[in-house]
Design a protein around this nucleic acid. Structure first.
Lengths: 144, 144
DNA sequence: ATATATTAGTTGTTTTTGTAACTAACAAGC
DNA sequence: GCTTGTTAGTTACAAAAACAACTAATATAT
């Protein structure tokens, strides 16, 4: 049997990663999409503001590795939902400081707790060693 | 420090999976997109036909866990590129058997070898044990 | 035999994403 | 000052994905 015949998509890491990511993404969507009508980028932006406090869109782009147009649209959507407010900075009016409203903070608290429970539940399927290896491998791959 | 404050997106498995999948996907795109002008679904369909031989669109849907509209459009695109041909089955004219042309087989050979090299290069960043755990974890997560 | 349900596959419409071009504000060089 | 360049953010348009509705062929039940 030649090498090319024995090779299978099921062994191909990019394929496995895509399938695994898709699977968990669909499951976790229940929390931000069904409950809050958010898109994935919106949840990520909300998370960054909730976790690290007020910051500008640019800072979110850098920290979350998200393109500025995605962030721009997510911010607009979150503002529509009354989850965040913008405030233009006086000394440099190009910057606007983004901050969560009370409703935004509540959504963050709810979602981040759901995320923690979700994560713990996923990890529970593996031994601590496996979970540790998995996490480290993913971090390494993601930061190439 | 409360639990919710110590929790970070960077520790959240669905996030890590998405980032890792995105990263490898972008890299591997060079082969099927830049070289052959294919979309990801097209490459997957091509792969299934190249690897397992002629079959119907439905069989590809089932094996590749792909929605029928995606497969339908990928098949049409691959046909436009002269990579596959369709043949209606006589005993049930709803089915059409899809098969690769010579050009399709060459593209498959090229891409599947590129995939193998890509995979080996990724795995080389890890110990055999790590790679093994990673693969097994991903398979488990993907098949939930 | 004919009405009903299924199945394979396609097409159309709406969302979402990606990319590039744009505006507004500031900074630097001369 | 006034060009030129940069940066933050938005907008507009094109590519792609998601979802629903559709056609055609066959199978099933009465």
């Amino acid at each position: 049997m030649s090498k090319s015949e024995s090779f299978d998509l099921k062994d191909f890491l990019p394929y496995l990663l895509a399938q695994a990511a898709e699977q968990t993404s669909v499951e976790f969507q229940y929390f931000y999409k069904t409950k809050y009508g958010m898109l994935r980028t919106e949840w990520r932006v909300l998370f960054h503001l909730g976790r690290y406090g007020s910051m500008t869109a640019k800072e979110i782009c850098d920290r979350a590795r998200l393109h500025k147009t995605k962030v721009s649209r997510a911010v607009a959507a979150l503002q529509d939902k009354r989850f965040l407010t913008r405030e233009q900075q006086e000394k440099d009016r190009r910057h606007e400081t983004l901050g969560l409203t009370r409703a935004g903070q509540l959504a963050y608290a709810d979602l981040s707790q759901a995320a923690q429970r979700f994560d713990r539940k996923m990890v529970a399927d593996f031994t601590p060693e496996e979970a540790d290896v998995l996490r480290r491998c993913l971090i390494r791959i993601a930061s190439l």
